[in-house]
């Protein structure tokens, strides 16, 4: 189980990386970030890129900072960076809670947030977070930067809006308001496995307990994670009780189009949405 041969390029500047990608992307060259998805695929020879552009030594891509109310996550920021609160307020807590579900501790030391979005596994956690929080992706190539909204980024199973020569240089996540409450629930077969279904809910509520802002997303069931506007609308303006939460969960379960195992995944969907909402309301 050894990868097919390839050429390894290790640029140290963004410009160099973009130039290498422009040159090798047409030959199926690929970015190597944490390698925690790409290297296993290469070991299994499911992927055989003849060129790897390793971005781990590119200066500046490891930045993780808050600027103007936005958390900016550079391309080589690892999953582990989020295990301790990486942003002020509820966003930091949310990212820390989610990060514990990604793979295993050693894999989190290498795998990157941005790599996870580029890999676009339907069962990965960060793409769900990006979708629910309306992240903005900053893609870079010799043509310059291009900003892509989360909703337009992941197009399907292992498929994104990135051009082959584009590097996802950073992802921007807006900070959450101090009164935002979140809930995250995931079902997987074993500890550390990819999710069979997961839901992320972020709610804000007014002084009277009514929901003023609702974000609700589902991952692991459809080819790409997404928000469910209909269920969000049910919640908005209402005081969520058990019945409403159940109705919202039911609506997501009905609307979802599972890739496989339809009945089972719908049942799981209902459960994870319900539990995520309950957490967010607690």
């Amino acid at each position: 189980m050894k990868p097919a041969p390839f050429h390894w390029h290790a640029p140290t500047t963004l410009a160099e990386a973009a130039a290498l990608l422009a040159e090798y992307a047409p030959q199926d060259g690929r970015v190597l970030a944490g390698g925690q998805s790409l290297l296993p695929a290469m070991a299994l020879r499911i992927a055989r890129p003849p060129h790897l552009v390793d971005i781990n030594r590119v200066a500046g891509l490891d930045l993780l900072e808050v600027v103007d109310g936005v958390l900016r996550i550079g391309a080589v920021v690892r999953h582990a960076a989020f295990l301790r609160e990486a942003a002020p307020g509820p966003l930091g807590a949310l990212l820390a809670a989610v990060a514990r579900h990604i793979a295993h501790w050693p894999i989190r030391q290498r795998g990157t947030f941005c790599g996870s979005l580029c890999h676009a596994d339907p069962a990965a956690e960060w793409p769900l977070v990006a979708a629910v929080l309306d992240a903005v992706m900053v893609a870079h190539s010799l043509r310059g930067d291009r900003r892509i909204a989360a909703a337009a980024f992941q197009r399907g199973l292992l498929d994104t809006a990135l051009e082959p020569d584009e590097l996802l240089r950073a992802v921007e996540l807006p900070l959450l308001a101090a009164d935002a409450r979140f809930g995250f629930e995931e079902v997987s077969r074993r500890a550390g496995d990819f999710a069979q279904a997961m839901a992320l809910a972020v709610l804000r509520r007014g002084p009277d307990g009514r929901v003023t802002e609702a974000r609700l997303g589902l991952g692991g069931v459809e080819p790409a994670p997404r928000r469910f506007p209909q269920a969000e609308a049910m919640l908005r303006g209402a005081i969520p009780d058990a019945a409403l939460i159940d109705a919202a969960a039911h609506s997501v379960a009905q609307a979802a189009q599972p890739m496989e195992d339809e009945g089972y995944r719908r049942a799981l969907t209902r459960t994870v949405v319900q539990r995520a909402l309950l957490q967010a309301c607690a």
Partner: peptide
């Protein structure tokens, strides 16, 4: 055909 598909118990199970 991989350890991601053949599920052996970890300590957590």
């Amino acid at each position: 055909t991989t350890f991601a598909d053949y599920l052996m118990p970890t300590i957590a199970e």
